[in-house]
């Protein structure tokens, strides 16, 4: 194709946008909303994964051993727990060790007081361990609870549990909303193209008679769709950036509350800039082009 023809097609594409201002604007808006929703869903999922991963890494399960269990039984118990596939970093924290650590933390006065009234070591032997897959944590702790000699199993905060079910629900809802919005975008863009085709029906009619190829007739509409798509991606990106950074600043501020839940550990927008930008632009251009081709296919039968 000649450069002059290419320029011509680009100009025709932009003319179409201008001629069809209202419809084009509607396409732009719905696409903008869709992209922001898509971005929101992706960003929340990524960060949920990170926060959950973080909690998984930090949280230890404590298995308290009954008082009257012998040293041999304790090592039996240790092998049994070690054999569970979902357990890692198993460590025996003996009562002697625990007492020593406790004494070390006390002030002199506290220590004197303690030694005066407590004859026997009151602390239990415990195992500390980590859970590999936190989604199966409840099964694992329940299993450990059935072992002989186990007094109790203390699992970490249930916050991880809540996050995990939230992630599951969020994922389903997000996919449903995103799919619906993408569908609506496609319909509206294809209607915009239809209006554009209608506005140019005389030209198209002549083009067909003089032997313009189908692709030549379609290219301006594609350009129209792509430009709207890319514009919407650009704006969606900016809006997402500001919104995200607002939330990010709140969560990473000095309030301890968010830190406790590990929520301060989310990604910064800049660290996700490249993948987010690329997915926005690709999604915008893609939805624009597909929406356009739906109606050019139907209305440009030559």
């Amino acid at each position: 194709m000649k450069i002059s023809s290419f320029n011509y097609l680009i100009r025709q594409g932009f003319k179409g946008i201008w001629k069809n201002k209202m419809m084009t604007f509607a396409s732009f808006c719905i696409l903008l909303v869709s992209l922001i929703m898509v971005g929101f869903a992706i960003l929340v999922s990524i960060n949920l994964d990170k926060v959950i991963g973080n909690i998984e890494e930090k949280s230890e399960v404590v298995v308290v051993v009954k008082d009257d269990v012998s040293k041999d039984s304790i090592s039996d118990l240790q092998t049994k727990i070690e054999d569970i596939p979902n357990v890692s970093d198993l460590r025996l924290y003996s009562r002697d060790e625990a007492l020593k650590d406790m004494m070390d933390k006390m002030t002199e006065a506290q220590r004197d007081y303690f030694l005066k009234y407590v004859e026997d070591n009151p602390l239990p032997d415990v195992f500390r361990l980590k859970i590999k897959d936190i989604q199966k944590m409840n099964d694992t702790t329940a299993q450990i609870g059935t072992f002989e000699g186990v007094e109790s199993v203390q699992s970490p905060t249930e916050f991880a549990d809540i996050l995990i079910s939230f992630r599951r629900i969020f994922f389903i809802v997000a996919i449903a909303i995103v799919l619906a919005l993408v569908l609506v975008s496609l319909i509206i863009i294809s209607n915009t193209t239809r209006a554009s085709v209608f506005a140019r029906r005389k030209e198209i009619n002549i083009m067909k008679y003089v032997g313009a190829t189908n692709s030549f007739i379609r290219i301006p509409f594609f350009i129209e769709g792509m430009v709207v798509g890319l514009l919407a991606s650009g704006c969606a990106l900016l809006i997402t950036k500001f919104a995200y950074e607002g939330v990010y600043n709140i969560l990473t501020s000095d309030y301890k509350l968010f830190g406790v839940f590990g929520l301060n550990n989310i990604y910064s927008f800049d660290s996700m800039l490249l993948p987010v930008t690329v997915s926005y632009l690709v999604a915008g251009a893609f939805i624009g082009a597909i929406g356009t081709s739906i109606s050019t296919g139907k209305h440009l039968k030559v």
């Binding site: 000649k2 002059s4 083009m207 003089v210 030549f216 007739i217």
Partner: peptide
């Protein structure tokens, strides 16, 4: 001119 353009004639 439009006719020649749509059949990709040289400018």
């Amino acid at each position: 001119a439009f006719v020649l353009r749509v059949i990709d004639a040289p400018a």
